[in-house]
Simulated scan of single mutants.
Amino acid sequence: MRSELYRGMFLSVTEDKSNKVTDYSELSDESFQIFEYWIYSNQIKDEIQITQQIIDELKIGIDYFQLNQTNPNLLDLLIKRFNNQI
């Protein structure tokens, strides 16, 4: 609900009968799992190993999912965790 894109989807009373699937293949499974968990819980799972590849993917994905306004900032938290892993 922190994303305008998802807020609109959740609050919409219309029904999509087209059964279309949005393909966002720029994200690896690990990156998408981070987004999915973040959207619903505003947290990053402890067991996820943050890599430079994930950070690079999420920089692009944050704009797509309209998550750049979240507080705390997802990208800042990922970079902080990445730096603490090294």
Rank of each mutant, 00 (worst) to 15 (best):
Q66C: 08
E4S: 12
T14Q: 13
L74T: 01
I86F: 14
N19L: 10
R2T: 10
Y24G: 04
M9V: 10
I55A: 05
G61V: 01
S31A: 11
K80C: 06
L78S: 05
T51W: 01
S3P: 01
I55G: 03
R7I: 06
G61M: 02
L11N: 15
L75I: 09
Y6R: 15
N71V: 07
I54M: 08
T51P: 04
E4N: 13
Q53V: 07
Q69S: 13
Q66G: 05
Q53D: 12
D16C: 06
G8M: 03
Y64M: 04
Y64T: 08
R7L: 10
E15P: 04
Q49S: 10
T14E: 12
Q66A: 10
I34G: 00
D23I: 10
E57T: 02
Q49C: 12
R7W: 15
I44G: 00
I44L: 03
I34L: 05
F10W: 12
Q66V: 05
I50H: 00
I55Q: 04
N83K: 12
T14K: 13
E4L: 14
T70E: 14
N83R: 15
D56L: 08
S12Y: 09
I34N: 02
L78P: 01
D63F: 09
I48E: 01
Y24V: 02
L78Q: 02
N71C: 06
F82C: 07
L77K: 11
D63C: 15
M1N: 15
K59H: 13
T70D: 11
D29R: 11
T22N: 10
L78M: 06
S28L: 02
F32G: 00
S28F: 02
I62E: 02
Y64D: 05
L11Q: 09
S25W: 02
I60N: 09
L58I: 05
I34F: 00
L27F: 02
M1C: 11
S41M: 15
W38T: 00
I60K: 12
K20N: 10
K20T: 15
T22V: 12
W38Y: 10
I79F: 07
K20M: 12
L67E: 04
F82Q: 11
P72K: 06
N83W: 11
N83Q: 15
E4P: 08
L77G: 05
W38Q: 00
N84M: 08
T14A: 09
S25H: 07
M1K: 14
K17N: 13
L58P: 02
I48R: 03
S28N: 04
G61N: 05
L58K: 03
S41C: 13
Q33N: 11
K80S: 12
D23W: 09
Q53N: 12
K45F: 05
T14D: 11
Q33V: 09
P72H: 06
F65E: 01
L5D: 07
S31W: 01
Q43W: 08
F82P: 06
S25T: 15
L77T: 04
T70W: 09
T51A: 03
L5K: 15
N83T: 14
L74H: 02
L5N: 13
N19R: 10
N68F: 09
S31M: 04
S31V: 03
E57G: 00
R81I: 01
I86W: 14
S3C: 06
Q66F: 10
K17C: 11
N83F: 09
V21P: 13
I60A: 10
N42G: 05
I44Y: 00
E26N: 09
D56R: 07
K17R: 15
D16A: 06
D76E: 14
T70Y: 13
